Computed example of a mutant assay.
Amino acid sequence: MAQQLVVTAIGADRTGIVSQLSRLVSDCNCNIVDSRMAIFGNEFTFIMLLSGDAAAISKIEYLLPSSGVELDLLTMTKRTSAHKPPPLSAPYLLSYTGPDKVGTLGAISSLLADHQIYIGALRSETHQLDGVPHTHTQMTVQLPGSIDAATVRSLVLDKLAQMSLTGSFELQS
């Protein structure tokens, strides 16, 4: 029976890291089911969901720490099981842009949590616009059956306006 393992690796960004980690995964007879990579500052970050039989997962758990040291990466693993999402709506895309202020993401995510809205994906970036930091954030969210999308859209757009942000809340196509 297939088992799953989440692997996180963080270290100085340089060419070839993804190739080396992918080779290790293959050499251990695991499959990369899902992955995300990003550069934060000068740091490379890579998160993978691996699948394999018990021997393959145990092998990569054993080899990854020493491989991480060789690659100058901080690594972490955690066993998991297949994701079984609760019954939710079709996905919606919530996006917003505006002046970057402390607490913006916290305020928006709290509003969603207060209404049991599931965040499935999140990407937030800050960039300079005329010397002022601005944030651009996109979230894929899903609603519980007990809340109507028009109500959520209204709540979100009101919150964005209060925070001097522009944005949208639309059914994802």
Rank of each mutant, 00 (worst) to 15 (best):
H115Y: 14
L111T: 11
L155S: 05
P91R: 06
K59S: 13
S164V: 13
S164H: 15
V141A: 13
M163R: 07
L73T: 06
S168L: 09
T151A: 14
A9P: 06
Y92P: 04
Q142P: 00
C28A: 12
D72G: 07
A56G: 06
I47K: 00
K84C: 02
T166Q: 07
G68L: 15
I57C: 05
H136P: 03
T8S: 09
I17M: 04
I39P: 12
L112K: 12
I17E: 11
S109I: 07
S154L: 07
L111F: 03
V152A: 12
G16T: 15
E70D: 07
P65E: 10
M139N: 12
G167D: 02
D100V: 05
V25W: 03
F46M: 15
D130R: 11
L24P: 01
L157K: 07
S154P: 01
L71Q: 09
M48Q: 14
L88C: 08
I32T: 11
S95L: 03
A55N: 03
S26H: 04
G103L: 09
A55S: 11
D158C: 04
D27Y: 02
A9S: 10
Q3C: 07
L165E: 00
G120N: 10
P86I: 10
G11E: 08
T8C: 02
V69Q: 11
N42H: 07
S173C: 01
G41L: 00
K159P: 00
F46T: 02
Y96R: 11
A107E: 15
V132A: 02
L94Q: 14
S58M: 15
T166Y: 04
G52K: 15
A12S: 15
D53M: 08
N29Q: 14
M139D: 01
T15A: 12
L50E: 09
V33P: 01
H127W: 03
S26D: 01
A90M: 13
V152Y: 05
A2D: 10
Q128G: 04
G145V: 00
G11L: 07
V132L: 07
T45H: 04
